[in-house]
Amino acid sequence: MGIQAPRIFHAKQILNRILENPQGTDRPKGHCAVHVGETSWKIYVKPVSYLNHPSFCHLLHQVGEEFGFCHPMGALTIPCNEEIFINLCNLCSL
């Protein structure tokens, strides 16, 4: 049971960050804003259901371990190549 607590805590942090509306970004209900990029940031609006996909969860876990969840942008921030993120989203939409 003690092993599950950190994961639940991280999931709550992720959801709190992505459900905020960063910089007035318009997004449909059930979607979240994600900042993606290595040097410059691009905002993607993706369905919250992607968070349940194992590959997306793995990426979030890696980002959380390496960079943490406190980012000044106020939304979920994934510092990775945009092409990798797009390919992952295509996989999640299948």
Rank of each mutant, 00 (worst) to 15 (best):
A75E: 08
H31R: 07
G74D: 00
P79E: 08
H58K: 09
I8P: 00
I43T: 08
V34T: 03
L60I: 09
P28C: 09
V45K: 03
H53R: 06
L60D: 05
A11V: 00
H58E: 14
A11T: 12
P47A: 03
G24K: 12
V63G: 14
D26Y: 11
H31A: 08
I14E: 06
C89M: 13
M1C: 06
H10I: 07
F67Y: 14
E66A: 11
E38L: 09
N90I: 09
C70K: 04
C80S: 05
L88T: 02
E38C: 08
F56L: 10
E83M: 15
D26R: 06
P28N: 04
P47G: 08
G68K: 03
N90G: 06
L91T: 15
N87Y: 08
P54A: 04
H71F: 09
N21A: 11
M1I: 01
G37K: 05
F56S: 04
D26N: 13
G2Q: 09
V45L: 00
A11E: 07
T39M: 14
T77H: 01
L88N: 11
N81K: 14
S49F: 05
L94G: 13
E20P: 03
W41I: 01
E65Y: 08
N87G: 02
L19N: 15
F9H: 09
V34W: 03
L60N: 02
K12F: 12
N21Q: 15
F69K: 00
E20M: 15
H58A: 04
G74I: 02
H71S: 02
H10F: 06
H10P: 01
M1D: 04
L19G: 07
F67S: 03
E20D: 10
E83A: 03
T25M: 08
I43D: 02
W41N: 01
L15F: 14
V63Q: 15
I78H: 00
H58R: 15
I18E: 10
L15Q: 08
T25I: 10
R27Y: 12
P72Q: 02
G68L: 01
T39F: 13
I18H: 07
C57M: 07
P79D: 05
K12V: 11
P54R: 10
I18W: 05
W41P: 00
C57I: 11
S55V: 01
S40Y: 12
A11C: 07
P28Y: 10
T77P: 01
E66L: 12
Q4S: 06
T25Y: 01
V36S: 00
C70P: 00
N81D: 15
V63N: 07
H53I: 03
N16W: 10
I8R: 12
A33S: 13
V63I: 15
F85M: 04
K12W: 07
Y50D: 06
E38F: 03
K42C: 11
S93T: 05
I43P: 04
H31N: 09
Q13R: 13
K12I: 13
M1K: 11
R17V: 11
R27G: 09
S40M: 05
